[in-house]
Computed example of a mutant assay.
Amino acid sequence: MIGVMGNHLTETRFRRVDDYSVEGYATLQQDRSVEFTSGEITLLIPEVDEIHQMDNFTDRPTVEIHVYGNDLRGLNRCRYNLETGKITPFVTEKYDNC
Rank of each mutant, 00 (worst) to 15 (best):
G69E: 11
Y80A: 03
D71I: 06
V34L: 04
V22N: 12
G85I: 05
E23K: 14
S33Q: 13
V63H: 12
V22H: 13
G74T: 02
L9T: 06
P61K: 10
P61D: 10
R32S: 15
V91Q: 09
K86E: 15
M1L: 10
E40W: 02
H8A: 12
D19W: 04
I2H: 07
N70I: 07
Y20A: 12
R77C: 06
V17H: 05
N7P: 06
V63N: 14
Y95L: 11
Y20M: 06
Y68M: 08
D49H: 15
V17G: 13
I87A: 08
L72T: 14
R16K: 11
P61M: 08
L9S: 08
G24L: 06
M54T: 07
S21G: 13
C78K: 15
T92S: 11
D18E: 11
H66R: 07
T10R: 11
R15F: 09
N56I: 09
R13H: 02
N81K: 09
N81D: 08
V67P: 02
N56A: 12
T58N: 07
E64Q: 04
Q30W: 01
V48F: 04
E83W: 06
E40S: 03
H8Q: 14
V67C: 02
Y95G: 14
T27H: 08
Y80Q: 00
L9K: 00
D55G: 05
L9F: 05
L43D: 11
G74V: 01
E93D: 03
N81C: 14
Y25G: 02
M5H: 14
Q30M: 03
R32I: 06
F57P: 05
T37R: 15
T92C: 14
V91H: 03
N70S: 10
V91G: 05
Q29M: 14
D55W: 00
